[in-house]
Amino acid sequence: MVGIEWFAGNWAVIWVLVAVVFGIIEAVTMGLTTIWFCGGAVVAALVAMIGAPLGVQFALFFIVSIVLLYFTRPLAQKKLNIAVEKTNSDALIGHIGFVTVQIDAFSTGQVKIQGKEWTAVSLDRALTIEENTKVVVRSIEGVKLVVEPSADGQQ
């Protein structure tokens, strides 16, 4: 049977266990935080195997963990972020459409752009835009296009 004394003299095994614990915590939380400490523990285990002093092991554990956390976490979050639903609606900004239902002042109307009808508001909220007016999409607010009359105006 293995006693506590055996573990105290085998820091490489302890570091591997620490890495496994951090790996399990990461698998449960998926917060992209503890995985980097898992990497630090693996490095500490490697230097423990070659006989480095305990202080060096702890120093490398913290240094490697913090460096991994600081430099690679933002990259991993960007690549793995599936919570953000991307749409192509932003591609409509700058495109030309036509008012199909008059956009009244401080109200909404309808604009047809790329063959689809969209609810739209005027960039200048006090402006009324008549039906069949050519408009340019300036931004998107929620599900509404924010438009203004194009330079050449009517169809």
Score class of each variant (00 low, 15 high):
residue 143 V to F: 08
residue 100 T to M: 01
residue 145 L to C: 06
residue 21 V to H: 05
residue 68 L to N: 14
residue 82 I to W: 09
residue 139 S to D: 12
residue 101 V to L: 14
residue 27 A to H: 06
residue 155 Q to F: 12
residue 89 S to T: 13
residue 28 V to K: 07
residue 137 V to T: 05
residue 153 G to R: 12
residue 82 I to E: 09
residue 32 L to I: 12
residue 72 T to R: 07
residue 112 K to R: 15
residue 27 A to F: 14
residue 22 F to E: 02
residue 109 G to R: 11
residue 6 W to Y: 09
residue 144 K to M: 08
residue 69 L to C: 11
residue 5 E to W: 09
residue 109 G to M: 06
residue 88 N to W: 06
residue 141 E to V: 09
residue 60 L to C: 09
residue 77 Q to F: 10
residue 103 I to W: 07
residue 104 D to Q: 14
residue 2 V to P: 06
residue 16 V to G: 07
residue 130 E to M: 10
residue 1 M to W: 08
residue 130 E to D: 15
residue 149 P to S: 02
residue 60 L to F: 13
residue 144 K to T: 01
residue 28 V to M: 13
residue 122 S to R: 09
residue 21 V to Y: 03
residue 93 I to P: 08
residue 66 I to E: 02
residue 153 G to D: 07
residue 78 K to W: 13
residue 108 T to L: 01
residue 147 V to F: 05
residue 101 V to R: 15
residue 30 M to D: 04
residue 39 G to D: 01
residue 65 S to R: 05
residue 16 V to S: 00
residue 66 I to L: 14
residue 101 V to I: 15
residue 68 L to C: 15
residue 57 Q to H: 04
residue 86 K to C: 01
residue 154 Q to L: 15
residue 35 I to W: 02
residue 71 F to A: 13
residue 144 K to P: 04
residue 120 A to V: 03
residue 59 A to E: 03
residue 135 V to Q: 02
residue 43 V to F: 06
residue 25 I to T: 02
residue 134 K to E: 10
residue 1 M to Q: 06
residue 133 T to I: 12
residue 23 G to H: 08
residue 71 F to Y: 15
residue 14 I to A: 00
residue 107 S to H: 05
residue 81 N to E: 06
residue 59 A to P: 07
residue 29 T to C: 06
residue 140 I to D: 01
residue 21 V to S: 00
residue 29 T to P: 03
residue 138 R to T: 06
residue 50 I to T: 14
residue 69 L to E: 00
residue 58 F to R: 00
residue 119 T to K: 10
residue 112 K to S: 08
residue 21 V to W: 02
residue 126 A to W: 10
residue 135 V to I: 00
residue 129 I to T: 03
residue 15 W to S: 01
residue 33 T to I: 12
residue 59 A to S: 07
residue 96 I to T: 11
residue 59 A to Y: 07
